[in-house]
Amino acid sequence: MNMRFLLTFVWVARLGSFRLTAEKLSSTQAAISSRISVLEAELGVQLFQRDSRGVSLTREGHNVLSYAQEMLATQQRLLQSLGQADTFSGRLRIGVMDTVIHSWLSELINALSREYPQVEVELTADTALNLNEQLLKGQLDLIFQTDLLRADGVRNRHLACYPLRWVVASGTPLDRPYEGLAALCQERILTFSRLSRPHQDVLNYLHQQGVSAPRISCINSVAAIIKLVADGFGIGVLPPVLVSRELSNGSLVELPMCAGPGFSVYASWRVGAGLELNEAVVSLAQEVVADYQRAVAPGHLVLPKALD
């Protein structure tokens, strides 16, 4: 039995789409359909029901799926015993939030190119909410975002904590002492996109401190927040690691006031037969984040004490 055809079958079952499977396996929809037809003819059963909404497993398909996953897992263990399991290839679809793009993503891509040169990386930048949805739909393999995602077939690993600071343009009217958070929040506050984890955490912290109606402007681009803060448009509530250069050259300064507990970044990825690359890349990301943390200013990025 052709193991590549079994892998194709497993991916069609996961994604519910010949088109998405073709994109994932760097093939064509016609080739995917042909592999499934050959497999159905060989097994003598219909594996999928096809309709306008996509494809779904038949009763026989559900039965075959468990055996197919077991066979693929056995193949992986065989390769591991021969020392060949780390020779990864194919397409890896990674989703990232803006904070990761502006911190350690470049280092991760360089490490991926070095460690797994035969892997083609496809990047999607979006909010954590949208990335979670795309992962659950099978449109992404691995995401880096702020939410602990609890779902069948998905694992999470805590990678880093990003402290938050109040940041203003040096020498502007906003660069002055404030009597407290209430006085500070009379100015325009610039923070992350609405309903994001950092935005919600900032609102909760201010509410706990008795500030019920802050002037908050939500922006879904870190680069835009930094530019507006630098132009004196408002006070940014940002992880200092994202503005380390501006803090070093003095164009931006931190205000000596607590901005809340900060937020965490997690890796969330799909698990199962044929998805071993995801786990390997998460482990590589841990190493990259640890190296990055040692290179930035103390306290600007915090590693978790224990992995989830």
Rank of each mutant, 00 (worst) to 15 (best):
T8G: 09
F9V: 07
S52L: 12
R19M: 10
G232C: 07
M97V: 13
L301R: 03
D126F: 14
M71W: 02
L25R: 07
V302S: 06
D308C: 10
L184H: 03
T21H: 01
T28C: 14
I101T: 11
V168K: 00
V296H: 04
P117I: 10
Q139G: 07
P173W: 08
I36L: 13
K24H: 13
I143A: 09
L20I: 05
E40I: 12
G234M: 05
V119W: 02
D98H: 06
L25V: 15
S26F: 09
L307N: 02
V167D: 06
T58Q: 08
A30I: 05
D175T: 01
N132P: 13
L252G: 04
L238K: 02
R150T: 12
E179T: 10
Q145A: 05
S34R: 10
T74A: 15
S217M: 15
L79W: 12
Q84T: 04
V282N: 02
V281Q: 03
S196N: 07
L275E: 15
R215Y: 08
Y162G: 06
R294N: 10
S56T: 02
E287G: 03
I226M: 13
S221N: 11
D86G: 04
L92G: 14
I32D: 13
E115L: 07
T28D: 11
F263G: 00
A30E: 14
H199W: 08
G262S: 04
L25F: 12
